[in-house]
Amino acid sequence: MTEFILQSMLVMLIIFAIGTLLRLLLGPTASDRLVALNVLSAVSLALLVLWGIRIGRTLYLDVALVYDIFGFLGFLAITRFLKDRKEG
């Protein structure tokens, strides 16, 4: 039962990741791509936690914790870069 839930969760998360990647590639403007990237970061966090629980090692969970806390700093950098390029 537990194995079944973890397996189907993995499949669903991969489907969500493919959907957001499609939006990331299709998105007409930079804003659409950034929205897709925002969702993709949450999905990849869930994938890391899922893998840590499934293997039974806490190392993946430590990585996921740091990724969770400092993940939005990357968005700050990307938005600052795009804004500067637009103005310059």
């Binding site: 804003s31 925002n38 939005f72 968005f75 700050l76 938005t79």
Partner: peptide, 8 residues
Amino acid sequence: GSSIVGKF
């Protein structure tokens, strides 16, 4: 994160 994207 979503607030940063919204502001952008």
